[in-house]
Amino acid sequence: MEVRTIKVFTTVDNINLHTQVVDMSMTYGQQFGPTYLDGADVTKIKPHNSHEGKTFYVLPNDDTLRVEAFEYYHTTDPSFLGRYMSALNHTKKWKYPQVNGLTSIKWADNNCYLATALLTLQQIELKFNPPALQDAYYRARAGEAANFCALILAYCNKTVGELGDVRETMSYLFQHANLDSCKRVLNVVCKTCGQQQTTLKGVEAVMYMGTLSYEQFKKGVQIPCTCGKQATKYLVQQESPFVMMSAPPAQYELKHGTFTCASEYTGNYQCGHYKHITSKETLYCIDGALLTKSSEYKGPITDVFYKENSYTTTIK
């Protein structure tokens, strides 16, 4: 009895394709271990004539594949690729409408935090270190965002349907971005203890939790000093293409032309909904596939993004 075979390709990165001759009487799992086709788990399936010449994702289970996976995804987590594939199996079914010149995501599976993050990423200057993220990001900007969303979920250790947080998501993504040249110098002034300067680099240099107003941050924000008295913390120097200011959701007025974009969060910790506000020729609110415009805006804002380049204080 002759062994019926077909020729397929296996890959971990969709760049390096490895030619395989597979036995049609055995499952993919018996031949390769966990195997995925377009995100779908085909591990328990036997090869079919229609699979001839198709590319299958496999887990990096030998040295060659491990090197290829690390170079593309910059992670050695053995569960990463499987999590990416199972997320992709959902995100490829989502709709990605162009809204006001940006790629958004039609609401499904509690994905409003991903839509808000995706919209924000198209408006701030950011370059990702893992080629996987950078490639998928370019495709997302062009309207094909399924891979990018699935990668975000995998890097953030999230599953489809789980509630997510924009600030946490951005923080994970910033860790995989090139923020080497970003720098922030802060000064804390206390009447009792004097003053202390701190220099922050990388992710810490672009994120701040405690106030939404970048102007206020430049002037000074009140913080408790270690001595128990009130101290003032203010920005001395900022070198970065953008800054992200966050605070627990509270009524906040966004003035046209003073910011790049913002995240609105309605609801409580267990259950809520994100919308995205962007400042173009007027203010726009993007909620999944829905767009509304207004000249002014007041609502429960939790993150505001500002364009920056270089700032030095005039406070002496």
Rank of each mutant, 00 (worst) to 15 (best):
K219A: 12
K280I: 10
L118S: 03
R167H: 09
P224I: 10
A117V: 13
N111A: 06
A150S: 02
Y113L: 08
Y73H: 06
A146G: 06
K307R: 14
E52R: 10
Q237S: 14
M207N: 00
T55Q: 08
Y234L: 06
P60I: 09
Q238P: 00
P60C: 02
G29I: 02
G288S: 04
T76P: 12
P78S: 13
R139L: 12
P97F: 06
D135N: 09
I45Y: 14
Y214S: 02
G82L: 14
Q123A: 05
V67F: 14
A289G: 09
K158V: 01
N157M: 05
A69D: 09
D135F: 07
K183A: 01
A69R: 02
D165R: 00
V166E: 03
T19A: 14
C112G: 08
A145Q: 03
N187E: 09
D180H: 10
T116Y: 06
M209A: 15
I6E: 05
N100S: 10
G228M: 00
D38V: 09
P97V: 14
T64E: 13
L291N: 10
Y73D: 04
T43W: 04
L119N: 04
Y208Q: 05
E52H: 12
D135L: 09
V243I: 08
I45G: 12
Q175I: 05
D303Y: 02
K293G: 09
G194K: 07
V203Y: 15
N309R: 10
Y265R: 10
L153E: 01
T75W: 01
V67D: 14
G33K: 06
P248H: 15
K229V: 05
M209T: 15
K95Y: 00
A145F: 00
Q195F: 10
S213G: 00
H90Y: 14
N268G: 07
L118H: 03
R184I: 01
N178V: 03
G267S: 15
S104P: 01
I315M: 15
G220F: 03
D41E: 09
Q196R: 14
G299V: 00
T312E: 07
V42L: 13
L283V: 11
F259W: 03
A145D: 03
L59N: 13
Q122W: 01
S310R: 13
V203T: 08
Q20V: 10
W107T: 06
R141H: 09
G272V: 00
C149K: 04
Y306R: 01
L81E: 08
K293A: 09
T258C: 06
L151S: 06
Q196V: 09
I301H: 02
D63I: 04
Y306S: 02
A177V: 09
I286D: 00
K307V: 14
Q270F: 15
A140G: 06
I223M: 10
A146F: 02
I152L: 10
V8W: 01
E68Q: 09
K219Y: 03
Q122I: 05
P130W: 05
G164T: 00
Q195K: 12
G143T: 04
P60V: 09
P47N: 01
C225R: 01
Q30P: 06
L212P: 00
F32M: 14
K183D: 03
T43I: 07
S171L: 11
S263L: 08
T120G: 06
S213M: 01
L291W: 15
T35L: 10
Y84P: 01
P300C: 13
I286G: 04
A205R: 01
I124S: 03
Y234E: 06
S213F: 01
L81D: 01
G33L: 01
M85H: 15
L59I: 14
T278Y: 15
L102N: 00
N268P: 08
E264Y: 04
K93R: 14
H276E: 01
E215Q: 08
V8Q: 06
T75V: 11
G257Q: 06
T313K: 15
S295E: 15
H273C: 02
F259S: 05
Y306P: 00
F128D: 06
I6V: 13
S279A: 10
P131E: 05
A69M: 15
L254H: 06
E2Y: 10
T226P: 13
L283P: 00
G272C: 03
Q238C: 03
L88I: 08
T35I: 15
E71S: 15
S246D: 06
K92R: 14
A115K: 06
C190A: 05
I315L: 15
N309T: 14
K46P: 10
Y28M: 11
A150I: 00
M26Q: 14
N61M: 13
L102K: 05
K255W: 00
N14P: 05
I45Q: 11
L179N: 02
A154L: 08
A136G: 07
A115E: 05
K255G: 07
K233P: 02
Q222V: 11
Q196C: 09
A247R: 09
P78N: 11
G272H: 06
Q237R: 12
K280H: 10
Q134P: 05
K201E: 07
K44C: 15
E308M: 10
E68A: 05
T116K: 03
H18N: 00
Y28I: 08
C225D: 01
T5N: 12
D23S: 13
E204F: 03
G29V: 07
E2L: 11
D77P: 02
G101N: 11
M24K: 08
C227H: 04
N147G: 11
H273A: 04
K106Y: 09
F70E: 10
